[in-house]
Amino acid sequence: MKKRGGNKDSEEIIVKRRSKKGHDDEHGGAWKVAFADFTMAMMALFMVLWIVNPRQELHNPSNSDQDNNPVVDGGAGVFDGTSNTPLELDGLPPAPPRKTEQIRKQDGEAEAERQHYETPAQMQQLARLMEMVALKVDAMANVEIEVVPQGLRILIKDDQKRFMFPRGSADLDPHFRTLLRSLAEVLAKVDNKLIISGHTDAVPYRGKTGYNNWNLSGERALRARNVLVDAGLPPAGILQVAAQADVMPLLPEDPENGANRRIELLLLTTHAEELYRELFGNGSAQARYSNDGTEFVAPVRKSAL
């Protein structure tokens, strides 16, 4: 502020200075300060996360040694240190001991787990179990199960769309192979002896000379036996593999009907097995032939104790 002249009453001159703003002032350096603060904050956050992360890994069981892992056999947690099976939790059943079962089979202890079925009620229970197996593999139309005085009769047959064997052949269809394998898983746990029989219809076999329905039914029964054994059925559990040809049709009034073609599994009771052994074993009467003639051998009877 300046005064013009020396007169006190003279007018004062006020000079106002205004800053000149250009069109580039909005692009000044203020944003750089805000960006620097943001960058610093992010760096601080990353440093905190980097420091905290190793501590979490130290407390994470999935990153620790397997000996301390709760889901590894023999470790702490739901498995104890001496068992291969999980401990029982409230309200939850224990998981199946798969490793224990494998060890038992390798040690030959599976025989002790096999169960013997004797009464009609027990046979009926086994029949329901096999029906569930057939349902699982979509083979209910191919299986008939019946409790008979000799034990349990399992009839495996064709349906309207699927044939167990092609006509005149012993080549087993894959669907029936799957069915037999599934049944073998159940029969492998059963102690009763088994008879396998093959049946054909009465249509004469047209093929190579000397080969007929007897040969065909026997080969089919033997093929079924091999599939069952390969699937886990103990060979000693099979008492007989029989060829029946067309002598026992399901439809006697129509012996040439394809419904007569089948494989039958007969699970024997103890009494039926004893009768069978008496019929074909040492307990039956025998005729021995020699050059000196025929000798009749009376059956050996067990003495009462």
Rank of each mutant, 00 (worst) to 15 (best):
P299R: 12
L251D: 15
L251M: 14
G237N: 14
E253R: 03
A242Y: 08
R223P: 01
T294E: 09
A259S: 12
L216S: 06
V227M: 12
M248Y: 00
L222S: 09
E256D: 10
N257E: 05
W214C: 07
D246N: 14
A304E: 14
R301M: 06
W214Q: 14
S284L: 01
I238W: 06
L239E: 13
G237D: 12
Q240D: 14
D246V: 01
A236V: 01
V227I: 15
R262C: 04
L239Y: 02
G218H: 13
L216D: 06
S290V: 01
V229Y: 05
S217R: 09
V241C: 08
R261V: 12
A224G: 13
R301Y: 09
M248P: 00
S303I: 08
D246K: 01
A243Q: 14
G258E: 15
V300T: 13
P234D: 07
R277F: 00
G281M: 11
L228H: 05
D230V: 02
Q244C: 09
K302R: 14
A231K: 11
V227S: 08
E256M: 02
A245G: 11
L251Q: 12
T270E: 15
E264T: 05
W214H: 15
P249D: 11
N215R: 11
V247L: 12
N282G: 08
T270K: 13
V241R: 09
T269W: 03
A287C: 00
G218A: 12
L267A: 03
N226Q: 15
R262H: 09
A236D: 09
G218D: 11
S303E: 13
S303L: 13
D246A: 14
G237E: 02
P299Q: 10
V241T: 15
V297I: 15
T270F: 03
L267K: 05
L279N: 08
F280E: 08
D246P: 01
Q244H: 09
A224S: 15
M248D: 11
Q244D: 06
G281T: 05
A236L: 05
V229N: 08
R277H: 04
L233V: 03
L228S: 02
E253F: 00
D246S: 14
L268I: 06
D230G: 13
A272G: 10
D292T: 07
A287R: 10
S290P: 07
T270G: 15
S290G: 14
A221M: 08
A298Y: 02
M248L: 12
L266F: 02
S303Q: 12
V247R: 13
